[in-house]
């Protein structure tokens, strides 16, 4: 199953599950207020240097999914085109899962990244993982689609550990949540 098929199945299943649990108004409201994102950390040259092998001591990884190329522990991985923070792939989690014992923020910002394998744009939700102090590994900052903090739904500078048990930032994920406009 390639990435697109997998995503279609996932979003279809997720939509059915959410529809079962909540009203449409609730779902749309949740999307509207939970515009997603990731948190912190700056400086392109430094962040890229510190996260692309040298210094991170994290072996190269692959997603194992056909059509999802690249190393999720590297800042150059295609999904990270708007991420800002420590990569959860280097912190005990994956590109779309938090490390053990942390909590994923329900609120964040979303951006769009182009997958080099199929040339399609995908909508990425940059959810932060929260509840333990900074992971400190694989700092990465890329800023496609990022807009200033006064536009929260499009900003990666904000600590998006809001709506969680506590606000302590650990690392950032990049979850595929849909196909973008092509």
């Amino acid at each position: 199953m390639n990435l697109l098929e997998k995503l279609n199945r996932f979003t279809e299943g997720a939509s059915r599950e959410i529809a079962r649990r909540s009203s449409r108004r609730g779902f749309i409201g949740m999307l509207g207020t939970a515009l997603a994102g990731s948190a912190m950390l700056p400086l392109l040259p430094v962040a890229r240097a510190s996260s692309s092998g040298g210094g991170s001591d994290v072996p190269a990884q692959t997603t194992g999914i056909p059509g999802d190329p690249g190393d999720p522990s590297s800042c150059d991985y295609w999904r990270y085109c708007g991420i800002d923070g420590f990569l959860c792939s280097c912190c005990g989690g994956t590109a779309n899962a938090c490390p053990p014992g942390t909590e994923m923020s329900p609120v964040t910002w979303v951006g769009t990244c182009r997958n080099p394998a199929d040339g399609l744009n995908y909508v990425i939700s940059y959810n932060d993982c929260c509840g333990k102090s900074s992971c400190g590994r694989c700092l990465c900052n890329r800023n496609d689609d990022d807009r200033p903090v006064y536009r929260p739904s499009a900003n990666n500078d904000i600590n998006w550990c809001v709506g969680t048990s506590n606000n302590i930032y650990n690392c950032s994920t990049a979850v595929l949540i849909g196909l973008g406009s092509q």
């Binding site: 400086l43 392109l44 800023n143 496609d144 689609d145 990022d146």
Partner: peptide, 8 residues
């Protein structure tokens, strides 16, 4: 370009 606004 798009996305270079934090490059310094």
């Amino acid at each position: 370009a798009e996305g270079t606004h934090k490059n310094g």
